[in-house]
Write a protein that binds this DNA or RNA. Structure first.
Length: 356
DNA sequence: AAGCTGTCCAACCGCTTTAGT
DNA sequence: GACTAAAGCGGTTGGACAGCT
């Protein structure tokens, strides 16, 4: 293991910080500011590298940090944001004032372990079981796979579909929707529809896309019950569209907003949301609508093929990374290979079964 | 009391991104 | 545009601690 380049020139201390060191750092930064971090240790009289000083300040000494364990509200928010953003801890932490990315990450790593062991997502497990019981020949869409990694369900193109340069996502998504409905009633997929009290805040946030002014840059607002999250490179309408009967693969970002009222109407017509107004919904009223949607949809977005075949890296789940990388079209595999974190996220995932 | 095991979390490592030249 | 240093970020490690046998 190498050391920081900034640490090579000097003998630096490692390990836990002593109270004296903390005091020196606090005094220096509150008096002079940190300026260039690499010069902080020298100016503050510390035998640490600048990187270590920066980390200590950001993660522990900053005066605006909250101390103590996370509140239930914070924990719920982390779980919901993670369902959208994946392991983008810094992005998640931005929505939790006084919390650091490290804290969020540690929370997730420890709580996720527990959640996987306990039975917080029985409905998801049963849904996967239902889906996996459908014979492929009956399922009809070999280009999609569903997986149940990390507490979530993912609808994704299969590796073989990606391998096909002429791959066009199956346009008959409605068939897929019908299939889902036939084999797994909406109330099975979304237990909250039959019983609002069944809402479990640990379930993923609904993917309800709201196009903002930056859609040219592929940025989307994903409305949340608590705040708005700016998400880059996530096509957020994969959930809404199949339910609303819109082909998700032809999705323009604007469609995501349009499908919100569509979804509401579908739910209303099916008496799945009995308290929704029985009228068509104006786009102007999206926020109130979104706020009324239950904040749990046990299916996350897959990937986007509508814009340069860009992949939502935190959403993709396949059998193994080597297979998927080598089977990708060149444009895909190169962009994917550039992200080591994506690859490591891909590796080690467990079973995925083709159901469509 | 001693040893073992599991959990938590601060700190580190290495890679990527950004900013400056 | 190329190069470099700094900053940012996510994954991982390992020490401290608690609980159990």
């Amino acid at each position: 293991m190498g050391h920081h380049t900034c640490c090579n020139k000097q003998k630096v201390k490692r390990g836990l910080w002593s109270p004296e060191e903390d005091q020196k750092l606090i005094h220096h930064i509150t008096t002079y500011g940190h300026g260039c971090w690499s010069s902080v240790p020298r100016l503050a009289g510390l035998e640490r590298c600048g990187k270590s000083c920066r980390l200590r300040w950001i993660n522990y000494l900053r005066p605006d940090l909250k101390r103590g364990s996370l509140s239930p509200e914070e924990a719920t928010l982390i779980i919901e944001l993670h369902s959208i953003l994946g392991n983008r801890w810094a992005q998640i932490a931005k929505h939790l004032p006084g919390r650091t990315d490290n804290e969020v990450k540690n929370f997730w790593n420890s709580s996720n372990k527990k959640r996987l062991i306990t039975h917080e997502v029985p409905a998801l497990a049963s849904l996967v079981a239902v889906h996996n019981s459908i014979p492929p020949e009956e399922a009809g869409n070999p280009n999609l796979i569903i997986s149940d990694q990390r507490d979530q369900l993912y609808l994704s193109p299969s590796p073989s579909a990606l391998h096909d340069a002429d791959f066009k996502p199956n346009p008959s998504i409605n068939d897929t929707v019908d299939l889902i409905h036939h084999h797994s009633p909406l109330t099975t997929m979304f237990p909250f529809l039959s019983n609002a009290a069944s809402f479990d805040p640990s379930w993923p946030l609904p993917f309800v896309g709201d196009l903002d002014d930056h859609h040219q840059n592929k940025k989307y607002h994903v409305p949340n019950l608590r705040n708005e999250v700016l998400v880059q490179d996530i096509v957020s309408d994969k959930l809404v569209n199949p339910i609303a009967g819109v082909n998700p693969y032809e999705c323009d970002p604007i469609m995501a907003t349009q499908t919100v009222p569509q979804l509401c109407e579908v739910l209303v017509q099916g008496n799945y949301l009995c308290d929704m107004p029985q009228t068509s919904v104006s786009l102007d009223n999206i926020d109130p609508l979104v706020s009324r949607l239950p904040s749990c949809f046990p299916i996350s977005a897959g990937s986007s093929y509508s814009h340069n075949m860009h992949l939502a890296t935190n959403q993709m789940e396949f059998v193994d990374s080597d297979t998927i990388i080598t089977s990708m079209p060149l444009s895909l595999s190169s962009s994917y290979s550039s992200s080591s974190s994506s690859l490591s996220a891909l590796s080690g995932v467990g079973r995925t079964d083709s159901i469509f």
